[in-house]
Write a protein that binds this DNA or RNA. Structure first.
Lengths: 345, 345
DNA sequence: TTGAAAGCGGTACCAC
DNA sequence: GTGGTACCGCTTTCAA
């Protein structure tokens, strides 16, 4: 390339990276050859030499989840805006694969690794993440946890979270204030941190309303529509006196809605339903689902901004300071799936 | 690293890449230091030197589309299986951004660039893609088009497609054989190749059934629920005699369903609805949507396999031979959103 | 089996 | 303003 244009490699570099004054003549000469050869610089060589495009890695359990897709969109969008690149890897809920991916990303020299989605709260979790955080930090990278519990102690990681429990509290309150007392609760998988938080929020709401919370009305299970369906189906036999369903996610709510209809019950006339997440599905169902809006895309943007700032800011703000744990708000979106309990049931 | 272990860099390389016989002693010595230092090789240096992990780039309009997410999952899954890495970039339907991304990927030295989703059939399309294909090919990479029209002429690209028109033909036939004659057709955006194919399939079915196809019953618009809603709303005023809706995608069908309900019409008793894509939404709606199944995830897997084979196979099969254009089948999934037309309407 | 050394394709510092 | 050149960290001959 350099010889083809009859100039030095240094000059080519200067023209292409554009961070150095060059004569018009030289620039023209180089650019002509670039066009002739359809030339692009080698990103690997560039990275090796110090320059290079910063890259964020997004690690996700399952790329087909709507909520995660929105976070990814937020990260990707914000990254693109800054000229950063984004890598995506899926873990399939497999800890080994997660580890492998974190290391792979470390090899790639990514600026940050963003881990998405509620975590299973097994004992090792804190240790495992702390290890990731330190590994990445030592390699000049940074760990960002999105929608997961923050790390305890002095660990070099950033957490972007949302008010999970508060959203559930508000959602349950909405049901309670409409007059519902017997509520079927489908929090999600018992071990998942998000499910735990949502359940806790609901309990607190019941407490605040002075309504006894019946643990027998809680049914754990995966965050999918099949669980929503079967849980309602079972409940219809065992504890059929519920007048509302508080689902852990919109997808679970969709399943619940189908089960009710299959049993000849109307929504919301006979039974009210609420969801959580506010993914597009919520407004595609009939009736449109009253749910908790979680700012997924915004979280993605915030996550990227956090690492970008920390990069630019350089030695500016110290770790341990504010900014290591960001919490975004949630709010109830009222649509058409809630009505006061019918006197008939 | 090498000195820390008291061995040569060559030896370290041999141990870590594991493609060369090494003594047990050396291996142990190196691995110990690797663990001590939490060391990972630099992927950029490795790529530069010739080795390196093959990477596929997935370019997508909008990461939040369920159909695309499934293709991405297929590609990513198959890539992971082979130890490949996947990059994801979103174009936001912006041709400039698409170009920028293709070049960016070329810089990254990706093994292949997979372009997802129906293309806008503007004049330049063929030229543009041919240019991409040649650029990538010259750089030792390869272009794969998924769900897009194949390229004409001798262009170094692979196309993975599905029987779009056939699916629409079958879907429309299903409606016709149920007795529907006045069908509201919402193909999607007029310029999008997938929409054109779906419309063509529907027309052919009408022809085959000897039923005159009324162009006045066709309403173009974006592939989203809002369009489905407003199109039905309008049609209810202008051509209210339809007994079924043939939607271009499941999402459009969801919008259509809502509009019908808002107008006090029942689905499928008063009006039948069918979709296209068979994304999870289709079975989450009530009634569950009869739709055309498109093997999105499979397409992703096939796309990756195609490039992987071509890589391994080396000079094996010639371009221009079979294998450059793969077409997967589609089929109708019958659920509960279709009924013979009611005599009342 | 292991080490030495020549690149891979850039960047950036140092002369001219 | 431009050219020369020493690395960046790894893979891969070539010798020992």
């Amino acid at each position: 390339m350099a010889e083809r244009a009859g100039v030095s490699v240094a000059s080519v570099s200067r023209v292409l990276s554009g961070n150095y004054p060059v004569s018009e003549d030289l620039r023209r000469r180089v650019m002509k050859v670039v066009r002739d050869l359809d030339y692009v610089t080698n990103a690997h060589a560039r990275s090796l030499a110090g320059g290079g495009t910063p890259t964020v890695a997004i690690l996700i359990n399952n790329i087909t989840g709507a909520a995660f897709a929105h976070v990814a969109k937020g990260v990707e969008g914000a990254a693109t805006l800054r000229g950063w690149l984004s890598l995506v890897g899926t873990t399939g809920d497999d800890p080994e694969r997660e580890l492998a991916l974190v290391n792979l990303m470390r090899q790639q020299g990514v600026a940050a690794v963003v881990l998405l989605g509620g975590a299973y709260d097994y004992d090792e979790y804190q240790l495992r993440m702390a290890r990731f955080a330190r590994s990445l930090d030592a390699a000049g990278s940074h760990l960002v946890l999105v929608g997961r519990p923050p790390l305890e102690g002095d660990v070099p990681a950033t957490t972007v979270d949302y008010d999970n429990e508060g959203g559930a509290y508000a959602m349950a309150s909405h049901l309670l204030s409409a007059g519902h007392r017997r509520v079927l609760v489908l929090p999600g998988p018992a071990e998942l941190t998000t499910a735990q938080g949502r359940l806790r929020g609901a309990e607190r709401a019941f407490e605040a309303y002075g309504v006894p919370f019946d643990p027998g009305m809680v049914r754990y299970g995966p965050y999918d529509d099949e669980h929503g369906y079967s849980a309602v189906e079972t409940a219809l036999h065992e504890t059929p006196d519920f007048t509302a369903v508080l689902a852990g996610t919109d997808v679970v709510a969709a399943g619940a809605m189908q089960a009710l209809r299959a049993a000849g019950l109307r929504v919301p006339e006979d039974v009210s339903i609420v969801g959580y997440d506010d993914i597009p599905l919520a407004s595609q169902l009939t009736p449109q689902l009253t749910t908790v809006h979680v700012p997924y895309e915004e979280m993605g943007r915030v996550a990227l901004r956090a690492v970008a700032d920390r990069r630019e800011g350089g030695g500016g703000r110290r770790k341990g300071a504010d900014g290591d744990h960001l919490v975004l708000g949630t709010h109830v979106v009222v649509r058409n799936s809630v009505q006061p309990p019918s006197t008939g049931r």
